[in-house]
Design a protein around this nucleic acid. Structure first.
Length: 870
RNA sequence: GCGAAAGUGGCGGAAUUGGCAGACGCACCAGACUUAGGAUCUGGCGGGGAAACCCGUGGGGGUUCAAGUCCCCCCUUUCGCACCA
């Protein structure tokens, strides 16, 4: 008696035990295997304690791909690990008195079990956890290499501080002015001395590299381009004119420029004691239209002016406050632009004109030089500001056609602000008549030649602040010696171990600073007492290189061997959420280049292909505890099995789109798997008895139809893997195949037993193989029940036979004036005349054209016939 | 404000190149079988209409023998960027 009930819990647990006992099942072959390699990687999770549906979806995609690539004969590396440092472990320690390490390792153990229960094909032998000394030893080692090369450095600067995290954050971790972990918590600015990694050194290369990543989503590349924020322009030094302020009374306060000083000569050397005010502009071609300078409220010169001017000091303070508020509100662009005249003037080095110096709330100290020349006629922000304060608006560029002598009539005034670069200069001295671009080059070159400026490229990307005043992270491996200053920990003293016994409190400052046994150390240079660095590294440092460790996860003497990296890298397919488009994905691109320049790897980029899957949502919203719409993977697995859960995650939507989790849909997939199970079991003996026999031939119309459907399905799924990854349609295709087989069963029963057995002995094993990437448990069970041996993963993917897949007859739609009237069945390549004849013979077509004149008959071979009448 | 993606039955979605709109699944309806189940099997299922037939892919125009698909205008949603000088 055959079991007629599909019991995923029983099947899956039984197979899980078998797979647990075969750890080599998913192990990649050695570098010299001679097979083509395929490195498929899903982003490593933070061990929060529970997998969520987003993880399940991510891993279901990667696992299907890994299994498919094994079946295609590749040597596949498919590893998993844990991004295991981080603040939640400390919070958990505060809450329930569990040490962070213990809490983290427990979570890892639990989540690993969940992954195994899902049947994911990871090679656990290569597992890494970034919080273990074996791993962070090498994180520290890399830090020291960067320190040697000046890529890691310490500097005092304004940094982002999250009061909830009680630590500094990198710029990348601040989203709309708030902490990336605490979306409602506004980040404060603190002036601290911190460790940085010099990401800006690779800014240009990180930007250029994006053009060489055609298989990364355009969206991610755009986000990175925006983040790097390159802009090309010039730095020009205006010079403060100390004499000009006396004549200020003759004018409206700061609204007009003063004529050049009597002794002004363009390009004359600037006096050594002059105060230079560098500004950055991308539109130096409009410099003759500059009618003021605008300084950031925090600009050092503003501070200097304010010291002697109480009223100005008060105004500046309020501007600073407005900037802060706008940033907190998350909409800095919406703020009303305004400012104050400082009472001072600066000389425009190209015209000698003395322009009033203002301080304005829309100028950012962090960008460029914190000062701009204001050209109201040709910049939207400057225009808005000038309108507000009644500053002069002077047009210095005009559209080409306006100045074209061939154009008739009077030149139109352009609508201001006018910013088109395809324009010509006017009111600009000897530069009149030049195009904007040409003028930009000439002006910048002149400034450089005469020592008051140069062409300049600025980046929005800043160096990466990596110091964290937290316990649960990789210690920064340096010492502070009163005699020798900053001293790196020697390589042979790595790792700098995190102390295990530590009290976690909510006090400010690094918890490590309160551990004397950690802080007090010996200087390796002079042997005297030294203080250990007590900050730890940002966890994004740990995850910037983790995928290089997998191929050589247990190497005791190096982070990895070059030979293994050369074989496995770059990663062939990286899969994860789009939320890391800036953070992890830009840091790891930086890290790869650093390692390349250290001679450790040969590749420029970590991954050739990147796939960002959509979110899992429910009832139209992202799953979250506060919305109460969270679905637990454990629940789904308990009710429907891992196969059904994973397969639904692939079936409900294409993987790049958001997926609406509907439990009824999981039940539907589970029902389908039950149908497959019973189908396989019904033909178990047929398959067994035909294991060694040649494949069935299309000896009858029914056999032919089934074999045709089988091969069409093979083709469809193979194409989905190679192309768009629309696994929802792959699974739909398998469902169609199963439906067709089921519908054919009464016909099969009428065949001679030997013939139907051979037919099903051919079809069922292929069906199992097609299902294997999506439902590995059921596939393994059926494979084994039907007499198959060995790991399904290493069986070749079914081969496609186009002759068997070809349709014998085509259904050709017949339209009259574009409307469907009939369908005719014809042999392929029937010829236009035959197609027309068949179409016109249809009674419904006859009825539709009766009494009308046939104007034209459009015949698309093998596709369609359209009869045009009037 | 700028940029990108999307908008198709009651729902998730399919239609890779302009060529039968709605594959596959869910929900629902009807039936079969039953040791009555969250079971299985069969059939139906965009709207209107008795039917012929008509209408239908966010809205409006256009190109074409033929438009979900191409072009123009508009609306909505999501995402990214947003004083970056």
């Amino acid at each position: 008696s055959l079991p007629d009930r599909y019991d995923p819990a029983e099947i899956e647990v039984r197979w899980q035990q078998r797979w647990d006992a075969e750890p080599e099942l998913y192990r990649a072959e050695p570098v010299h295997s001679g097979k083509p390699k395929y490195y498929v990687l899903e982003m490593l999770p933070y061990p929060s304690g529970q997998l969520h549906m987003g993880h399940v979806r991510n891993y279901a995609i990667g696992d299907a791909l890994a299994r498919y690539m094994w079946m295609q004969g590749y040597n596949v590396l498919h590893p998993m690990g844990w991004d295991a440092f981080g603040l939640p472990a400390e919070n958990a320690a505060l809450k329930n008195q569990t040490p962070p390490r213990e809490w983290t390792l427990q979570n890892i153990a639990h989540m690993r079990r969940q992954m195994e229960r899902l049947g994911l094909s990871y090679d656990w032998q290569t597992e890494i956890a970034t919080c273990l000394p074996d791993y962070y030893r090498w994180t520290q080692w890399f830090f020291l290499r960067m320190l040697e090369r000046g890529l890691a450095f310490r500097k005092q600067s304004k940094v982002n501080w999250c009061p909830l995290c009680a630590t500094v954050l990198a710029n990348e971790q601040v989203i709309d002015g708030c902490c990336w972990r605490h979306e409602d918590t506004v980040v404060e600015q603190r002036d601290l001395e911190q460790w940085f990694l010099r990401t800006t050194q690779y800014a240009q290369e990180l930007l250029d590299g994006l053009d060489k990543l055609p298989d990364w989503p355009e969206k991610v590349r755009t986000m990175q381009r925006n983040w790097i924020g390159r802009s090309e322009g010039a730095t020009i030094e205006f010079v403060l004119d100390p004499a000009a302020q006396e004549s200020e009374t003759a004018h409206d306060r700061g609204k007009l420029s003063l004529p050049p000083p009597a002794d002004f000569v363009i390009g004359a050397p600037i006096a050594a004691d002059a105060t230079r005010i560098p500004i950055f502009t991308t539109r130096v071609d409009t410099i003759f239209g500059a009618t003021s300078l605008q300084l950031a409220p925090q600009h050092p010169l503003v501070k200097q002016f304010a010291q002697a001017d109480e009223r100005l000091a008060a105004e500046v303070a309020s501007l600073v406050e407005e900037q802060k508020k706008a940033r907190e509100a998350g909409d800095p662009g919406a703020v009303d632009k305004h400012g104050s005249f400082t009472g001072h003037y600066a000389v425009n080095p190209f015209s000698g004109e003395r322009v009033p110096i203002w301080v304005a709330n829309y100028i950012l100290l962090e960008y460029g030089t914190g000062a701009v020349m204001s050209v109201p006629a040709h910049d939207e922000r400057d225009f808005e500001f000038a309108e507000k304060h009644g500053l002069e608006v002077r047009i210095v560029i005009l559209p080409r056609r306006t100045l074209d002598p061939a154009a008739s009539g009077q030149p139109d005034e352009p609508v201001l602000p006018y910013t088109e670069e395809d324009s010509l200069l006017i009111n600009s001295g000897e530069y009149n008549g030049l195009g904007c671009q040409e003028a930009q080059h000439k002006l910048a070159a002149f400034a450089k030649e005469h020592g008051f400026g140069q062409p300049t490229i600025t980046f929005r990307l800043k160096d990466w602040g990596v110091s964290r005043q937290r316990y649960w992270g990789a210690p920064i491996p340096v010492l502070y010696c009163p005699k020798d200053g900053i001293v790196p920990v020697p390589d042979d003293q790595l790792p700098v171990l995190l102390p295990e016994q530590i009290e976690i409190t909510q006090q400010d400052g690094s918890p490590l600073s309160r551990v004397p046994g950690f802080v007090n150390a010996t200087c390796p240079r002079c042997g005297g007492p030294a203080r250990r660095e007590t900050d730890t590294m940002d966890t994004f440092v740990d995850s910037s290189w983790y995928f290089y460790r997998y191929p050589d996860a247990h190497n005791p003497s190096a982070p990895f061997s070059r030979e293994k990296i050369d074989y496995w890298f770059p990663i062939d397919q990286y899969i994860g959420g789009v939320e890391h488009a800036i953070l992890h994905l830009i840091y790891s691109r930086f890290w790869t280049r650093v390692m390349r320049d250290l001679g450790l790897v040969g590749n420029d980029e970590p991954a050739t292909r990147l796939f960002t899957q959509g979110m899992v949502i429910r009832n139209g919203a992202k799953m979250s505890k506060s919305k109460g719409n969270v679905v637990s993977p454990d629940d789904m697995i308990a009710r429907y099995g891992a196969d059904a859960t994973r397969m639904y995650a692939l079936f409900a939507a294409p993987p790049d789109r958001d997926l609406d989790w509907q439990e009824d849909g999981v039940a539907g997939v589970s029902r389908f798997l039950g149908r497959v199970y019973r189908l396989g079991m019904r033909y178990r003996e047929s398959v067994r008895s035909h294991a060694e026999q040649p494949s069935a031939a299309p000896t009858s119309p029914l056999a032919q139809a089934l074999l045709r459907k089988l091969h069409q399905t093979i083709s469809k799924i193979t194409q989905d893997f190679a192309g768009r990854w629309h696994f929802n349609t792959s699974i739909a295709a398998v469902m169609e195949l199963v439906n067709e087989i089921t519908a054919a069963e009464s016909g099969l029963a009428e065949m001679p037993a030997e013939v139907s057995a051979r037919l099903m002995g051919t079809i069922v094993p292929s069906l199992i193989l097609l299902l294997a990437p999506f439902a590995p448990y059921l596939a393994a069970e059926l494979w084994s029940e039907t007499g198959g041996t060995g790991a399904l993963l290493r069986r070749p993917w079914p081969s496609f036979d186009p002759d068997l897949a070809r349709e014998e007859e085509l259904e050709i739609p017949v339209q009259v004036n574009g409307k469907l009237r009939a369908v005719v069945r014809l042999l392929p390549d029937a010829g236009n005349e035959a197609m027309q004849r068949a179409a016109l013979a249809e009674p419904r077509v006859q009825a539709a054209i009766a009494g009308k004149q046939v104007v034209k008959i459009v015949v698309v071979p093998n596709k369609l016939i359209n009869i045009v009448v009037k």
